[in-house]
């Protein structure tokens, strides 16, 4: 069975799209550098395509057990002060962020 060996090259537009999805702004210069880096990295990553994995079940969790259940009990108290203490914008009741525009 022939193995696929291709490289999906990542163009500048894709880099910008990923940066948008990641919510990380990048300037053009950085984008170009990233385009170069990412292409090198993915070219290397794509050696995985030499491997036929059609019949392999993906590994979903390394610990070979299942989810442990917790009782439905309220244990957390009101810790508003702790929760808001590290917040960059001071407000004793709420987190404050710049206006959301829909």
């Amino acid at each position: 069975m022939p193995l696929i060996n291709y490289h999906m090259s990542i163009d500048l537009k894709t880099v910008k799209h990923i940066s948008k999805l990641s919510r990380i702004s990048i300037d053009d210069q950085k984008a170009k550098k990233l385009e170069k880096d990412l292409n090198a990295i993915f070219k290397w990553i794509e050696q995985l395509n030499q491997l036929n994995t059609d019949k392999v079940e993906p590994l979903t969790s390394i610990a070979e057990t299942t989810l442990r259940f917790r009782k439905d009990q309220i244990e957390s108290k009101n810790i508003r002060e702790d929760i808001l203490k590290n917040s960059p914008k001071d407000n004793k009741d709420y987190f404050v962020v710049p206006k959301v525009v829909e």
């Binding site: 919510r23 990380i24 702004s25 590290n86 960059p88 962020v97 710049p98 525009v101």
Partner: peptide
């Protein structure tokens, strides 16, 4: 790490702008 609850926050014109600058 989005500048809302703790840590560093950069100023932004709106929420998305704040996110993008903070994380950048």
């Amino acid at each position: 790490y989005d500048g809302v609850k703790y840590g560093f926050r950069a100023d932004g014109e709106n929420l998305i702008d704040m996110y993008e600058k903070t994380r950048s």
